[in-house]
Amino acid sequence: MKHFTYSILVVFILSIGSTNMVAAQDNARTSATTLWDEANAAYVANDYASASAIYDSIEQSGMVSAKLYYNKAGALFKMGEIGESILYYSKAQRLAPSDADVAHNLAIVSSYTRNKIEPIPDFFLKRWMRSLGSIMSGDGWAWLSLILFAGVLAGTLLYLLPLGHHIRKTGLYGLSALVLLTIFAFSFARRDWKETASPSGGIVTSPSAAVKSSPDNSGKDLFLLYEGDRVQVLDAMNGWNEITVVNGNRGWIRSGAVSMID
């Protein structure tokens, strides 16, 4: 029982520690909300440039959301900024992977890019895992993993109780399934956490950029990427990024030409 009270205390202290932060955030949030309404009004009035600028100022304040990215991407698209628009839709998709509107708009805006890059078909298990992972946001998976973890603990305790023989047997199977699900949920959450900490997905935002065989100007030009193309950054060196494209091509590109989906 002593342990128990102690842990409650820990949680309590943690929550007190964060109340100050929460208060500061609340202030930022209310001003951001008025800005948000202004920006939406500007968008409705077809004044995309100022809508985009206001969305930008919200983003500058450090407060973001999938909706913010989504609306900004819309404004950018209306201004003809295809690359930037794809970047912001991709950011929105990272925060809300199951949002149908985001996926729809991203598909439409992507059809304006110059390159038509055919992706290599993935192994079906990988594809399934990816679509499973995009059911929820990373935070959703984190919550689920926590709940499932609690379930595993409770199940273990139950398992220790002297119950009927076959109840225990089916209980064991259930428990193993629960453990597996927890691992899945946790790994999805962890992947999102890793991507947030050091993003690897990027969008080409300069009108066009040559991909070279080595990280310097003298390298051979391998292929050309255009505004809006999606790349995966593998490595970075002296202002150059090593990237792969969905069709499997690989090379070095100037890091200034790529904006990360952070």
Binding site: M63, V64, S65, A66, G74, G138, D139, W141, D192, D262
Partner: peptide, 21 residues
């Protein structure tokens, strides 16, 4: 074809780069 209209209502803002995990 055109993009869907912007999203209205509460923006649901959160500090950037923070995950629950």
């Amino acid at each position: 074809q055109d993009i869907q209209f912007i999203k209205r209502g509460s923006p649901g803002l959160r500090p950037k780069g923070r995950t629950f995990l």
